[in-house]
Computed example of a mutant assay.
Amino acid sequence: MFAKLSPQTRIIATVIAVLLFLSFLMRWYVFGIQWHINLILMLISGSMMTVSWGFFSQFHRYLDKVFPYERGIFLRIIPQVLITFGVVYMLSWFVMWRVISLFNFEDIINKQYTTLAQVAGYFAQFVVVVLLNVLHLAEYLFRKWRENALRAAELEKEKAQVQFDNLKNQLNPHFLFNSLTSLDSLIQDSPELARQFLQQLSKVFRYVLQHKDKGLVSLQTELDFIKNYVFLLKTRFESTLFIDFQIQSDSYDKKIVPVTLQILIENALKHNIISQERPLTIRISTDGAYLKVENNLQLKKKVETSNKLGLQNLRTLYGFLTDSSFETIELNGKFVAYVPLID
């Protein structure tokens, strides 16, 4: 049951328990009060502390609504401390001179409650009240900071998603133009191949339309889509483009962001020379917890349509979805992208 309490409540409960235990020991060791009377005094003190903390919680919650700290910390904290101290003082006075008299503790109170003890008691109460108010202020500021941090992170995630969606929308017209150009040449030369090409093209765009609003899809779903996409590319580039798949069976149910593979393949096509003398090879494989997409580097001197945002948007988006990072490296004449597979 104790574990179900909030961290703040657990801290306060622990502090109250420690104070009650120390006061019990002091009354027994210094004043020699009998254990059954000491126990009653401890229960009364515990009740006072619990009631005081309950009042603090409700009072702070009320002020958080009607006069939050943002309107002025000192304008809030000074009257807050004075009011809470006044309530504690009145409660202590009421208990001291009204409740304890019912148990015939006058002699004990007179023995303990000297003028010095009164001053020390009021000072201790004031210090405790100030500490509780400062604790509430610190907790309030930390909560607001955490809320703002979460809100900022959510806004960044939404921004990354919007940028990624814009990227997908930009890819579609460019890809469609190239596909229609290829289809036009096939209609006269190979009507049957043109029909197959058109069917695969419709499957590609159906996938984009069906999954453009989804955050994640299974790797199997993405691979089924990309194989239709590869058919279109092979028809266009023929023997100058090779795409090889080496996927482990236990990876098919893992998740990735939709059209990740299309963006990576499109990136390879956009930045590299593709010709009979210098064919482009793209290998897609699984490497532990990652999907590995690599191609041989034969960079073009100038890339007309590159805005250099595609990979960055993927990197940012995966950064919000998983602790494993999206990485790209150039190694031994190859460009390699590591896409984290999400469980």
Results as ranks from 00 to 15, higher is better:
residue 310 G to Q: 00
residue 132 L to M: 10
residue 305 T to M: 11
residue 9 T to F: 03
residue 208 V to R: 05
residue 105 F to V: 04
residue 156 E to Y: 09
residue 137 L to N: 12
residue 229 Y to T: 10
residue 112 Q to D: 12
residue 66 V to Y: 09
residue 31 F to M: 03
residue 208 V to L: 03
residue 175 F to M: 13
residue 147 E to L: 06
residue 33 I to H: 02
residue 124 A to K: 14
residue 88 V to P: 04
residue 306 S to A: 11
residue 339 V to A: 06
residue 157 K to H: 08
residue 325 S to V: 08
residue 148 N to W: 04
residue 142 F to E: 11
residue 51 V to P: 00
residue 231 F to V: 11
residue 204 V to Q: 10
residue 250 D to M: 05
residue 261 L to Q: 03
residue 261 L to S: 04
residue 19 L to P: 02
residue 298 Q to M: 11
residue 320 F to W: 03
residue 179 S to T: 14
residue 240 T to N: 15
residue 122 Y to K: 06
residue 54 G to A: 10
residue 251 S to V: 05
residue 327 E to N: 13
residue 297 L to T: 14
residue 72 G to I: 07
residue 338 Y to N: 03
residue 152 A to Y: 12
residue 48 M to D: 12
residue 165 D to I: 15
residue 18 V to G: 00
residue 24 F to Y: 15
residue 246 Q to L: 04
residue 231 F to E: 11
residue 112 Q to C: 12
residue 221 T to I: 07
residue 123 F to K: 14
residue 145 W to V: 05
residue 288 G to N: 06
residue 59 F to M: 11
residue 193 L to R: 15
residue 68 P to V: 08
residue 185 S to Y: 12
residue 193 L to T: 13
residue 249 S to Q: 05
residue 160 A to F: 05
residue 117 A to C: 00
residue 88 V to M: 08
residue 156 E to V: 03
residue 192 E to F: 06
residue 126 F to C: 03
residue 96 M to N: 04
residue 66 V to D: 13
residue 47 S to R: 09
residue 131 L to R: 04
residue 197 F to R: 08
residue 145 W to R: 14
residue 237 F to N: 08
residue 271 H to Y: 13
residue 328 T to Q: 10
residue 187 I to E: 05
residue 169 N to P: 04
residue 170 Q to Y: 14
residue 25 L to E: 07
residue 246 Q to F: 02
residue 326 F to K: 04
residue 68 P to H: 00
residue 315 R to E: 08
residue 115 T to Y: 14
residue 263 I to H: 11
residue 107 D to W: 07
residue 188 Q to I: 11
residue 133 N to Q: 09
residue 275 S to I: 09
residue 190 S to V: 08
residue 284 I to C: 00
residue 166 N to I: 07
residue 79 P to S: 08
residue 222 E to N: 03
